[in-house]
Design a protein around this nucleic acid. Structure first.
Lengths: 237, 237
DNA sequence: AACATCCTTCGGCCAGCATCGAAGCGTGAA
DNA sequence: TTCACGCTTCGATGCTGGCCGAAGGATGTT
């Protein structure tokens, strides 16, 4: 039962925005975008601040409900508190200026991140874009006005790969929305289905996480398997 | 200060978030959520700051690309620079805490805003929720996994009301997504179709804008017309 | 022309907060 | 127990940025 007067009925977005507005906190949140939990020390290192500073920031993010924490031994693992938070970060990134190009050469890291990465919990980057292309080409997926829908054939194929499609449909989340990639400027498959497919591909050993957060690598078996199941378009360079 | 390297390729979301993070600017942006252009002075009054302060804020919002400005005589009209910006605000509002209840009585304003309001450029509030219900009940709209689709009957009905459906389909925007109402906690019709329908209803004189931003009122003709076209469910109190 | 209105710019004031080192607390290892 | 490690708390410091009144431009009105 809400009731403020002049700004009538709005939620107070400023405090939440303020949590994201600090560069250090933004770096931490972005580092958590892949949905994994990272230790406080690791986040401090990634953001380039002292442990004390990081702790203060994480405490504020915790208060604001943007992250949750799990204690494990003497470590404390922080993670985004849900897909909603990731969505905010993604939408925000979409309207944010691209970082200035610092030099002509891209780092190896940056290139690998472009190749295959996760976007909170689903496959993104070039691999994500190609996967979506392959699914559409193979008539596994239909393009609707502003989302995708599985064809019967697609449902069968994905089930065979170990994707629990009915569970994805039941999820309290958009089922198969396009998710605009901010490195590729092209959509990839997001939502519950995107997450389920990605989980299955990793489970199957076709992709594996590398040391850096959000980066993925196609394994040799993955290359073969994708070739078989998806007309080869996915596995080609 | 050591630039963190892993976040290499990300857009820099912190500066944009910082623009939204100030309560005064957030109030201004929220006031612009209905898509209309407001004069600088009006925004100052709404946000409760002096003209000088408002000017500084608007200048920063302008630099950040969140708003655009149109000079007209001695007035300067500011508006959100696009639906993307509105989307960010909406998504942010969704994860933001509801404002504390200040008293038991709701102001007339608040009640009217709940009744019918616009959400950037489409109908929201109770009227928006009821419109969506009526469209679904009357088989004008089909519910898909995470969006809606017009039935042939619905397309005909809306065209008859003056809605340019093909134009809405061509728009570079989701066609008919559900938009979660943050006052009603229920979806209403958003996207290009939502905007087109709303524009048509206002054009037709069935709804009219009131003095306060984002508030709408059903006219008597509107009540009659909606009764006729939509099984009466829409027009009933 | 002279005035009123709307808005911006300037200068100065003050609060908030990001930052760090050092110290404190809890956990796991020797 | 004692040490090592990870993290948080404390206290102090410095800077960013929001705020206003007054003055300055620009535009429309009389």
């Amino acid at each position: 039962m809400p009731a403020p007067q002049h700004v009538a009925n709005d939620a107070e977005i400023a405090p939440v925005a303020a949590l994201i507005a600090d560069p250090t906190r933004a770096a931490m949140l972005t580092a958590l975008l892949d949905g994994r939990a990272l230790a406080a020390g690791e986040l401090a290192r990634l953001a380039g601040v002292s442990a004390a500073t990081a702790s203060a920031h994480l405490s504020r993010l915790l208060d604001g409900g943007l992250v949750t924490v799990v204690r494990q031994g003497r470590h404390r693992y922080y993670r985004l508190s849900g897909p909603d938070i990731a969505e905010v970060l993604e939408v925000l990134a979409r309207i944010s200026p691209r970082p200035a190009v610092r030099g002509l050469t891209q780092s190896r890291q940056a290139r690998r991140l472009e190749e295959a990465r996760t976007c909170y919990d689903h496959l993104a980057g070039r691999a994500g874009v190609r996967l979506l292309g392959a699914l559409l080409d193979g008539d596994h997926l239909d393009e609707r006005a502003d989302a995708y829908e599985l064809t019967p054939a697609g449902e069968e194929t994905l089930e065979a790969l170990g994707v629990d499609v009915p569970a994805a449909r039941r999820a309290r989340r958009r089922f198969a929305p396009p998710c605009l990639d901010w490195t590729e400027r092209t959509p990839h498959l997001g939502g519950a289905l995107g997450a389920a497919v990605t989980a299955a591909l990793i489970e199957r050993g076709w992709f594996e996480r590398t040391r850096e957060p959000r980066a993925l690598r196609v394994t040799p078996e993955g290359r073969r398997g994708l070739e078989e199941h998806f007309t080869g378009r996915m596995a080609r360079e």
